[in-house]
Design a protein around this nucleic acid. Structure first.
Lengths: 149, 149
DNA sequence: GTGGCTGCAAAGAATTTGCATGGGC
DNA sequence: GCCCATGCAAATTCTTTGCAGCCAC
């Protein structure tokens, strides 16, 4: 496993990362706004362009890119991990019924990290904030099909 | 004396749950403040008192109790799920180095849910807020061993 | 008594890893 | 050419589930 130190220091310049075709397409897949695909969803998509890409490669890249600070790994809900492009601060709403995940615009919450710093002796690096609830479709009527992405 | 256990049993009955020895000990395990054990950690502990309890039982109970709203299932960091007793609002700090999880006192953040309601058409039920950082030991010196609990 | 619970074991889902080969820089 | 990255497949890790007997209520 890559160490955390890498994650901490490597923020902007991905040192020593090669831009392979696989890696580029994986990144492209995460560029579409509002998407928070699972590793398998990324795999299925990229496979349409590189039919013999392996799931292991996808996992390895998602990990490496996440360590390099280029993407973010999300731990939302009980299922698989999800990934999104780390562009600007925003948070997520998660429908507990259908699993859909939506973005909420960047926080009107003041600086959460600052407050956390004042309350612990941890070196605060960041945070994950996820709301849970029912999306419009699920609360209005019959539950929607589970949304894979 | 009036123990937490009494409250536990009182709470369990309305939910239509039977208070088995296994379930009681699992709940006791989560009563210790500041703990956020994984399913396996709970299993290891309870096993000292019920040597032949099965891991499946632990998982089933954690799920049932979580559904009943008596405990909370956490999705922190990359590893296993963790569980804590749902007593009052508080947040967690997660050391990305050693994995330790600490509580932060209840929020000085205002009503996060209210703000989220104003920003989406979801029915907001709740939220999970976790900070990430380095704990004192990890930032001061050599990384600590990964903390299983 | 009965329906929920349990232990056991096997299955399942998600993710990681070893190894030989391939390709970016 | 060096060495990171890949494909493939097996291995791990974590969690769920089927089933027959058991026990709380």
């Amino acid at each position: 496993m890559v160490t955390i130190m890498n994650k901490v220091q490597a923020n902007a310049k991905p040192a020593g990362l090669r831009m392979t075709r696989q890696r580029r397409l994986i990144l492209e897949e995460l560029d579409a706004p509002g998407r928070h695909p699972t590793a398998d969803a990324v795999y299925q998509q990229v496979r349409r362009r590189i039919p013999n890409i392996s799931l292991g490669t996808v996992y390895r890249n998602l990990e490496v890119l996440s360590q390099a600070g280029m993407i973010r790994k999300l731990h939302i809900g009980s299922g698989q991990k999800r990934y999104d492009r780390k562009l600007h601060k925003h948070y997520h709403v998660h429908c507990v019924q259908c699993g859909r995940i939506s973005d909420l615009p960047g926080g009107p919450f003041g600086d959460l990290e600052e407050v956390a710093r004042g309350n612990s002796d941890f070196d605060i690096i960041g945070y994950e904030l996820e709301f849970e609830g029912l999306c419009r479709q699920c609360k209005d009527s019959s539950p929607r099909q589970r949304e894979p992405n």
